[in-house]
Write a protein that binds this DNA or RNA. Structure first.
Lengths: 188, 188
DNA sequence: CGCCGAGTTGAACTGAATCAAGAAACGTGG
DNA sequence: CCACGTTTCTTGATTCAGTTCAACTCGGCG
């Protein structure tokens, strides 16, 4: 759980009392490999920090299961739109490996927003980060070919690509599993 | 300027005093056709409402000028990342036609955030909207072909496609001008 | 043991890029 | 207001990345 405090303090200094308020709201949640953390159509009630494991966000029905993002140890995630609007989520969140989360509920987070000054800073930082990540992906999809997108992903998260099924990576990159298989063969 | 109040009130009710505070900070800015509203590398100082005209956000150097979005009359825009972080903008903003904006500066907006309760609501609403727009575009780029993306754009904003140079639309869709020319021919 | 999902490989096909050249529209100066 | 050069758009021919369909292999699990 100490990892979470470190994460915050990379962004903004946090007083002991702020941390006290925040950490008291955290709930530990564990998910086995391949389990569903948030089903499509459900309302996202949590903002979660990944202590261990990795997850993917996807739309299972779209184009035979489309992956939109992966998240790994030491990062926050949420089905952001659903969490903010409290409407059913278009996206599904799945645990790729066994995963341990520290989660804060929507209601508790609102309370933190009202009780601490850093709440809003962190919230804005989160939304900025998400936005910029999407922007980067947009640029990549528009200007790069599949091979370059694969290499970019590999460069960022080499350790993970070992553990993630090829078909998920392919759908994230925006190509078929066959095409990715050929790319891997070509570059190795 | 009354359009702006209407815009806000679609989102959240606004008291007269809130509106008074807000509107007193608005500056009218006019730009001729093809002029640069914000050059790449400059820091975005404004959040702007389009009273008249249309703009596009682009990266002029990337892949020979890549268009990321269009914005039209009755909407807000900003080089969002630059505005929030007050760092130089990767994007350039250009007036496609003659354009009239009502703009609020970064400093004034901070003041409004502190003076009114709706400021934060509106700010969050703006970032949500931007995020969801990007998400929609991501899905479109991953699952649809160029022709469908063109038809989608046409469906949303038919009046505009007349006025926007084909090459900008092509780069927004993610194809070459030649390919878009052929698509237009095919579907007409 | 046998099955089933995941990955690999091959062959044919297709949407879009690229290269190239001509036509139309546009703006600027004489 | 026309003439010129420049930019934008169109059209054709060729090439290429990635899809689709199909068959085969491998590893894990009931």
């Amino acid at each position: 759980m100490n990892e979470i405090k470190k994460y915050f303090e990379r962004v903004v200094p946090m007083s002991d009392s702020d941390w006290e308020i925040f950490s008291s709201k955290l709930t530990r949640r564990a998910f086995p490999k391949k389990s569903i953390i948030l089903a499509q159509g459900k309302i996202e009630n949590y903002l979660s920090f990944i202590e261990k494991g990795m997850i993917r966000m996807c739309i299972p029905k779209e184009w035979d299961d489309l992956t939109f993002s992966f998240e790994f140890e030491g990062n926050f995630f949420s089905a952001y739109s659903s969490f903010l609007t409290q409407q059913p989520s278009d996206y599904q969140i799945e645990a790729i490996t066994e995963t341990i989360l520290w989660s804060i509920s929507h209601a508790d987070l609102q309370e933190i927003y009202s009780k601490t000054t850093i709440g809003n800073t962190l919230g804005r930082y989160a939304s900025e980060g998400l936005y910029m990540k999407k922007t980067k992906r947009e640029l990549s999809l528009l200007t790069k070919n599949a091979e370059d997108r694969y290499l970019d992903l590999f460069k960022e998260e080499p350790r993970l690509l070992q553990q993630i099924p090829l078909k998920y990576i392919a759908s994230y990159i925006g190509i078929t599993p066959q095409a990715l298989s050929r790319i891997r063969k070509r570059i190795s």
